[in-house]
């Protein structure tokens, strides 16, 4: 067992893990942050995407011990402390960018990562950036719309109401 410490959603946390403990297991089982989901075992579906030191990472494809000392952001850290949804989260609701909600945390985290890198992505760039996030419900149409709308809002542009 190894003792690890990291910041998760701005809060210092620590725990004892095995070498084989995955970051997603640490988040879900040790910290009770069950918003990060597991949808596959081959690193493709992206339901487990979180940010590690500011970049999107698949939490099911990273060892918890490897995140020792890191700053981790999960879906639970995306809304304001008073519960106000972030711009991206609000856009997903506004544009019906989710149905069953299972892939949604990973989608939001990947979208946030994209918009950190590229404030003005094209539709094609949004679609390409979601290559590692599978949604089975929405057909992606409204997810893409939501991300484009969130980008526009973050740039300070007015977005037509739906």
């Amino acid at each position: 067992m190894t003792k690890i410490s990291m910041k998760v959603n701005g809060e210092a946390v620590s725990g004892e893990v095995e070498g084989r403990t995955l970051l997603v297991q640490f988040l879900r089982d040790h910290l009770g942050l069950t918003g990060t989901h597991v949808g596959c075992d081959t690193g493709q579906c992206g339901a487990c995407v979180v940010h590690v030191d500011g970049e999107s990472v698949k939490a099911c494809n990273m060892l918890a011990a490897a995140a020792d000392g890191a700053e981790v952001m999960t879906i639970e850290g995306m809304a304001a402390p008073d519960g106000t949804l972030s711009v991206i989260q609000a856009a997903f609701q506004e544009h019906h960018g989710l149905q069953c909600g299972f892939c949604t945390p990973g989608m939001v985290m990947s979208a946030a990562d994209l918009l950190n890198r590229n404030a003005n992505p094209s539709e094609a760039e949004v679609r390409a950036y979601l290559e590692g996030n599978i949604c089975r419900c929405t057909g992606y149409h409204n997810i893409v719309k939501a991300i484009l709308a969130a980008a526009a809002t973050l740039r300070g542009e007015a977005v037509a109401a739906e």
Binding site: R28, T34, H37, Q93, G101, T104
Partner: peptide, 21 residues
């Protein structure tokens, strides 16, 4: 009416309650 979904808030904030949770 195209009312926005109330269930979205829990799913968007990681507060959903799926069986594995």
């Amino acid at each position: 009416a195209s009312i926005k979904r109330r269930e979205d808030v829990r799913f968007l904030t990681g507060a959903g309650n799926y069986t594995d949770d």
